[in-house]
C-alpha cells in the first residue's frame, strides 16, 4: 500500500497528542508500519502545533511534507488555513469551525482572516463542524476533538468497529462512553 499521510493541527493544549495516539494505535492493530511525529515543550504553550501520522507497508520519513497529506484534521480554523498547502490535490480537510485568536490578533498587530472556510473550499474538499457546540450537547466540551476525529474516520480505510475498539483502549476508563458517543456524532455527521 502506498503510504497514507495524515496531519493533525491545532493550538497547543487542544489535545492533538491524544488524537494522534488513537490514530497510531489503530494503524498498528491493522498491521501497518507507522511513524508519528509530535511537538512537545515550548512550542506547545498555546502555539501552533502539528502532528504527523504516516502509515503503510514501510515508512521512512516521520514527517509529512507540503503537497503530501491525504487528510488534514484541524482543531481550529486559522490552523487549517496555515497548513492547507500540505494537502494533496484531492486531499480532505476536516475542520473544527472554531476561532482562537493568536496573540498578534489579540493585541491588534494582525487581523484574523475572514471567510477561511470559503477560501479552503475553493481548493479542497472541506468537512466542517462546530465540534465544541456538539460536544457541549453531549455534556463534555473536552471531547470535541474526538468528534472531529469521527468525521476524519470517513476518509480513512478502517471500520467503525476498529475505531471504537481503539478509542476504548486508549482513553481513560472513566471517559470511554462519552468518547465513543462523541466519535459516533462525528462519524455520522457527513456520511
Amino acid at each position: 500500500m502506498e503510504t497514507k499521510n495524515i496531519m493533525i493541527v491545532g493550538v497547543g493544549g487542544q489535545g492533538t497528542l491524544l488524537t494522534s495516539r488513537i490514530l497510531g494505535a489503530l494503524t498498528i492493530q491493522a498491521g501497518y508500519d507507522v511513524k508519528l511525529s509530535e511537538v512537545h515543550g515550548m512550542a506547545q504553550r498555546g502555539g501552533s502545533v502539528v502532528t504527523f501520522v504516516r502509515y503503510g507497508d514501510k515508512v521512512y520519513e516521520p514527517v509529512v511534507e507540503e503537497g503530501q497529506a491525504d487528510v488534514l484534521i484541524a482543531f481550529e480554523r486559522l490552523e487549517a488555513l496555515r497548513y492547507a498547502h500540505f494537502l494533496k490535490e484531492k486531499g480532505a480537510i476536516v475542520v473544527n469551525d472554531n476561532r482562537i485568536d493568536p496573540m498578534p490578533v489579540v493585541i491588534g498587530a494582525a487581523k484574523y482572516p475572514e471567510n477561511i472556510i470559503e477560501e479552503l473550499e475553493q481548493h479542497h474538499r472541506v468537512y466542517k463542524v462546530d465540534a465544541l457546540e456538539e460536544a457541549k450537547k453531549l455534556g463534555n466540551s473536552r471531547v470535541f476533538n474526538i468528534i472531529v476525529l469521527g468525521i476524519a474516520a470517513q476518509h480513512m480505510n478502517f471500520t467503525k468497529e476498529e475505531w471504537l475498539k481503539v478509542i476504548e483502549e486508549t482513553v481513560p476508563a472513566k471517559t470511554i462512553e462519552i468518547n465513543k458517543k462523541a466519535f459516533e456524532v462525528g462519524y455520522n455527521l457527513h456520511s
Binding site: G46, E66, H85
Partner: peptide, 28 residues
C-alpha cells in the same frame, strides 16, 4: 526534509502550493 534534499540535490522543481499568508501563532 526529503523535499529539501530533492530540491538541493535532485534539482527538482517541486510544484508546491504557496502557504497562505496568515498571522503567526507564537507560544504564549
Amino acid at each position: 526534509t526529503a523535499n529539501l534534499l530533492r530540491k538541493a540535490i535532485g534539482g527538482e522543481k517541486l510544484s508546491i502550493a504557496h502557504p497562505a499568508q496568515v498571522p503567526n501563532r507564537p507560544p504564549i
